[in-house]
Each structure stands twice: as C-alpha cells, then as structure tokens.
C-alpha cells in the first residue's frame, strides 16, 4: 500500500478501499439483499446496524467470498473482484470474524488460530509445525493483551468471551490485512473483554490503517470507535452518517421511527 501518510480522513481521501455496487441476493423466494450500495474508506471504521434478519451477515459473507451475490459488483482498491472462495478473498487482504466465530470446538486454541493457514514442514504430507504455531500464537495473543491461560486448551473449554477474542485474534493476526469484517464481535463479551476488543479495533485502524466494517447492536460501543454508521433495513442501506455529524440520539430516533413506520404499515407488503 502507498498510503503511509498517517490515518486518512474517513472516506474522503482517494478511492475507497472497498465499494459495493447494487449487491443483490435472494435465498429461494426470499429477497434478502435488494441492491446494497456501500463504500468503505481507507482506514475507516464503518458500523453496520440493522434488525435481525436485515441481511448484515449475508452481506458480510458475500464480501468474504463465502457466498456469491446474485447481482451487483464489488470493487477492492478500485478493481472489480469476484471472489469465488474465502481463501481468494483472504489472499486479497479481506479477513472476517464470523458471527458464529467459525471455531472448531475440538481443536486447540493455537490450531484454531492457524486454521487453514497452518505452518507446516512443507513436503507431500504437510506435517504440522506445532511448536512454531504454539509459540507464535502465544506471542500474538500476548501482543494484543488477550488473556488465554492455556493455549493447548480445546476451544470448547473456553468462555464465550475468550472464544470471541480468539476469533478476532485469528482475523487480525495476518500482516496483509486490508479489510476486516467483524460480525457482532462483542456479542458474548463482558465489559472488560469488550473494551479490550474495542481498543484492538481502534489500534488496528489507527496504527495499522486497517479498514473495518463492524456489525453491532450496541450504539454506545459503535459511537466509541466508528467513523461512520450505516443502517441496513430489509436488504438495503437506508441511513448513512459520519459519527462526527450525528449522535446516538439521532440514530435511535431514526430506528424507532422506522420501527413505528413498519408497525403502522402492518402486514402490507412493501415494494421497493
């Protein structure tokens, strides 16, 4: 990357790192995304808000190459990309913390951290370099202040918060990360663990220049670390403001107003 001149102002300098153009997706008869337009600036942290079932997770999984969009275009660094696999998206610097965390209960902390990017001795069989993975995992978790006493413990033995921390550590671990997608990364966390992850998010955007989309329901959290907030409703972006130019109250008011409008419109099918 060439933007070494400190953290750029959100979404204003140059091309956005990521731009979605009219993304659509249906599952069977259900239209989940109905033309999502969204752009993410370099180093920007974008909060994505929306009711359950609004399509946030689906959108995240489309960006990571886990599911394919039906229509629309994705631009990364100004180039149109069609990722056909998670590996391919990763090789372009897109990393993800999935809502379900994608951890393997029976694998150790360090094997989970290196899952699908295992260090091996190379060769035909690909023997695991467990000692190297173990010590690198320990080192990385210490670096980001995540406290996991036993790195050999199986993931199923950890608390919900610890598991979430592992998933965040896994996604942020690689040096080449450009875009980090975090789907409800704070959901199972206590206050102390959450503040740790929030610090990590801040640090990754400020000192590593990583751009992020963070899905979360907690507006207070979002206003702490986001440069901008977008609301997705019924598969489309309906509201988009810089946090500096809006407030928690304004966002709350919008969401409540929208909620009332939907209730009042009752069961009438909306055509968009």
């Amino acid at each position: 990357m060439t933007d070494t001149a400190g953290p750029p102002v959100a979404g204003e300098v140059g091309l956005p790192i990521l731009r979605l153009d009219n993304i659509t997706k249906r599952f069977g008869a259900v239209s989940v995304l109905r033309g999502v337009n969204l752009s993410l600036g370099r180093g920007e942290v974008l909060g994505l808000v929306g009711d359950n079932g609004a399509g946030k997770t689906t959108l995240v999984k489309i960006i990571t190459g886990f599911i394919r969009a039906d229509g629309g275009r994705i631009f990364l660094d100004g180039k149109e990309r069609r990722f056909t696999s998670v590996d391919e998206a990763r090789s372009h610097g897109i990393e993800t913390v999935y809502q379900d965390l994608a951890l393997i209960p029976q694998l150790s902390v360090y094997h989970n951290l290196f899952l699908n990017r295992e260090l091996t001795t190379g060769g035909f069989l690909g023997l695991l370099s467990n000692r190297r993975m173990r010590s690198l995992a320990r080192q990385y978790l210490d670096d980001i202040n995540v406290n996991i006493p036993d790195i050999d413990a199986e993931a199923e033995m950890l608390s919900g918060g610890q598991r979430q921390a592992i998933a965040v550590a896994r996604a942020s671990r690689m040096p080449g990360v450009k875009v980090l997608l975090l789907d409800e990364p704070l959901a199972a966390m206590g206050a102390r663990e959450a503040s740790l992850i929030i610090d990590l998010i801040r640090d990754m955007s400020k000192s590593r220049g990583i751009s992020m989309i963070v899905v979360d329901h907690n507006y207070t959290h979002l206003f702490e670390f986001c440069d901008r907030i977008s609301v997705i409703q019924q598969g489309a972006i309906t509201w988009d403001r810089k946090t500096a130019e809006t407030s928690i109250d304004e966002l709350t008011e919008f969401m409540v107003w929208e909620y009332r409008r939907q209730v009042m419109s009752g069961r009438v099918e909306k055509v968009e």
Binding site: D100, Q106, N116, G126, L128
Partner: peptide, 22 residues
C-alpha cells in the same frame, strides 16, 4: 500430525465453521 488430518477434525467438529475459515 498433518494438515489434512487437522482439516478432517475441523470439518467433523464444525463443518460450517471450517468452511467459513476456508
């Protein structure tokens, strides 16, 4: 001890999660 074995355990332990991890 091998990568493919780890992927077997991962796939058997959490197939969707393993797929999400690539």
């Amino acid at each position: 001890r091998s990568r493919i074995g780890l992927h077997v355990v991962a796939t058997g332990g959490n197939r969707n999660g393993a797929a999400e991890a690539g």
